[in-house]
């Protein structure tokens, strides 16, 4: 046993990479569907908040991520967009990330076409605006002015039917930030605290731990955490997609990592005891 553990301690780490890779690929090949599990209260909170909004409410969505974070954030963004459209809400899409403009088109346009939503009436894409905090603060006073009265396609915002009802944050029922960075904190600090805008966040799992205290303190309406949160939201809206599909691989890979951690700890204690016995 001791000899085996010593061998495992000095194993080439590339074998571990290979095993993890196999754990991710095999569930896809076998079409394995493990249950997503009980839905997190923080994800359900976002879903329930959107459900209770009156039809026609304007939901602002900021797609603050790049292709590097797409696997985690795009499934949840698509699920939330679908939910908002199905509840007949309108969407104001924007991004504070230079590479976010493409993310808006990927997440929004496909679902909008699928549900026969009309641009300018049901949704508007104002694209990327540099300035970060200055943009957040400016939108609290005059949204159209901040975007120079022009959307991402070069059309006049003031001429769009949807934008006739949208002047500032008072006209936004909920703002959801899909982010792979600390921008949700900026939205909380400058839009929620200063203007009282209700904010939810959909973030990468790395970011989620930092944001849970803000959900507990009710500064966030809800929080969608990584691929798990995306899968939960897909189930809540009854539209399983890449989030649900990826969760089987995620679960098996996690089990494997837990096994590695247990084996590593056993190995550590056995070898430590052996070296203590020798001395």
């Amino acid at each position: 046993m001791g000899e085996l553990l010593r061998k495992l301690e000095s194993i080439d780490r590339r074998w571990i990479y290979l095993v993890i890779f196999a754990a991710v690929v095999i569930p896809f090949l076998m079409n394995l569907k493990l249950p997503v599990g009980k839905h997190s209260p923080s994800t359900t909170a976002v879903h329930d908040y959107i459900e209770q909004l009156p039809p026609g409410s304007v939901i602002q969505m900021s797609f603050d991520y790049s292709p590097a974070s797409m696997p985690e954030l795009e499934p949840m963004a698509k699920a939330v967009v679908r939910h908002a459209f199905e509840e007949n809400h309108r969407i104001l899409a924007m991004t504070l990330h230079p590479q976010g403009a493409l993310m808006i088109r990927r997440a929004l346009d496909e679902v909008a076409t699928d549900l026969n939503k009309e641009y300018g009436v049901d949704y508007v894409d104002v694209g990327f605006k540099p300035g970060g905090v200055a943009v957040i603060l400016g939108m609290g006073r005059d949204i159209i002015r901040v975007f120079e009265d022009m959307d991402a396609r070069g059309e006049k915002l003031s001429a769009m039917p949807m934008m006739r009802d949208v002047a500032d944050y008072d006209d936004i029922a909920l703002m959801i930030d899909f982010a792979a960075n600390s921008l949700p904190l900026a939205w909380i600090g400058y839009a929620h605290e200063r203007y009282g805008l209700q904010i939810a966040a959909g973030v990468t799992a790395v970011m989620a731990t930092d944001l849970y205290p803000y959900w507990k303190s009710e500064q966030l309406v809800g929080l969608i955490n990584g691929l798990k949160g995306a899968a939960e939201y897909e189930e809540l809206v009854g539209a399983p997609g890449f989030g649900v599909l990826g969760m089987s691989s995620q679960s098996i890979a996690h089990l494997l990592i837990i096994l590695f951690i247990i084996m590593g700890n056993i190995g550590y204690f056995v070898t430590r005891r052996a070296s203590q016995n020798r001395t």
Partner: peptide
């Protein structure tokens, strides 16, 4: 959470 995030990136590529 970090492990989950990194694994999600690999899952995204495999998908």
């Amino acid at each position: 959470n970090t492990v989950m995030a990194r694994m999600s990136l690999l899952i995204g590529r495999v998908e």
